[in-house]
Structure formats: C-alpha cells, structure tokens
C-alpha cells in the first residue's frame, strides 16, 4: 500500500508517523500499569534504563569513524574525572572536530 505525497497525502503520512510515535511514548507506560511493581521488576527497570543508552551507543562506537570513537572515549574520561556532563560533552565534540580536520 502506498500513499501519494501530492495533496493531502503528505498530511496523512505525517499523521501516521505521529500516531505510531505517540503509541511508543504511551505504550510502555500503559503496559506497565498492568504489571505489579515488585523488587524483581524494579531491578529489571534499573538495569534496562542504563542498557537502553549502552545499546544506542555500542553500534555508534563500532561503526563510527575515529572521530566518533575518540569523541566517546574523551567524553567518558572527562566525565569520570570531572563528573560534570557539559565539559565532558564539549571535550568529546571538540576531539571529533579536531580528528576530522586532518
């Protein structure tokens, strides 16, 4: 099934995208309202919240160029030392920019 992008088609496509995205924003909350929150569920949630980020980052580091990898490494090191996100992020971006100039 296809939708032509002429006329109102674009609007329909955007609305479909918006509804699908809204379902993802609301769906997790809705499903959890049927799950009793016990200690095991809490442990699942805590472990999963860090794992979401790690799962986003792992392919970024592996498929990325040297600039991407150095940016992530620099961010991690600066964050471990200073424990402040903004200097860590800035240092990471600067290191990617520097590597990519050469």
């Amino acid at each position: 099934m296809n939708i032509a992008t002429a006329g109102y088609g674009t609007l329909v496509i955007i609305l479909i995208m918006a509804l699908v995205t809204l379902a993802t924003r609301w769906g997790g909350v809705f499903v959890m309202s049927f799950v009793p929150i016990n200690y095991r569920v809490q442990q699942f949630i805590t472990a999963m919240s860090g794992s979401v980020l790690v799962a986003v980052l792992a392919p970024m580091a592996v498929k990325g160029d040297d600039g991407a990898r150095l940016a992530l490494l620099t961010t991690a090191v600066v964050m471990l030392i200073l424990k402040k996100p903004l200097p860590a992020i800035t240092a990471g971006i600067l290191s990617a920019a520097l590597v990519r100039q050469f």
């Binding site: 699908v20 995205t21 993802t24 997790g28 909350v29 809705f30 949630i45 999963m48 919240s49």
Partner: peptide, 12 residues
Amino acid sequence: NARHLLMGATLY
C-alpha cells in the same frame, strides 16, 4: 522509536 516504550516503562 520503540525505545520510548522502554523509557515509559522505566519511568513507571
């Protein structure tokens, strides 16, 4: 966008 499902669950 499926990660939003997980985010909603973790905030629940």
